[in-house]
Amino acid sequence: MVAPPDNDVLWARGLHYSYSGSPALTGVSIGVREGEILAVTGPRGSGKTTLLKCLSGQLLADPGEVWFNSAPVHTLSRGARERLRRERFGWIDSRPHLVPELTGWENAALPLLVRGTIHREAKRTATEWLERLDVGDCARKRPGALTQAQRQRVAIARALAADPTVVFADEPTAPLHQADRAQVLRTLTTAARSHQITVVLATLDEESTALADRTVTLVDGRRGGAIPAPDASEGEGRAACSVSA
């Protein structure tokens, strides 16, 4: 095992993963710097979700190494990885996946409550985040009474309210219309930048890559194109967005 470079908050090397025989990742290496927004693009089935799941410790790469803050994730037990996800990571799915029984603020406050934060504090934080994301009026409504865009914002508030170090967003705008899409993405990136939160954003559309600092392309489970050196990758992302514009 080689210790990762110090400036990367999250670092992975040689990730392989296959779902009962069908390979999803074949040797992906990636480094995520602190506070940056990294877009992972690629067509459907290129392994974006699997990469995010491996990085966040939901799946265990075999073989492959994942390091978070210079500590190995791939050697941790299942319980320790759950605690890591609970306390340091946030996860935004392509569907909101809110708990239907809970109201908006309770959903957003759930990670805090699970951590054992006192009730009043959790409620205050969750309500603040909901207001920051323009869904303050949804705090007392159940997910069933909200529109899809509102639900997705509540899901983003849930991920951000727990004050994570890294947020993984797996196609967070997939179920939304164009107008909602841009707005949701902008709120997510703005909030992340203002709070120094690292974001790993898996996305299909070109527009979202414009908001990212850097873009990594996956094709059939491996890094697409020439594997860039960490310094050169900035240019790649910018180039991709200028083509799209």
Partner: peptide, 16 residues
């Protein structure tokens, strides 16, 4: 079960 798997992704332990 859908909700449970979503909570699991958030790192909510099964014991809870």
């Amino acid at each position: 079960s859908d909700t449970a798997s979503a909570l699991h992704r958030l790192g909510v332990p099964a014991s809870l």
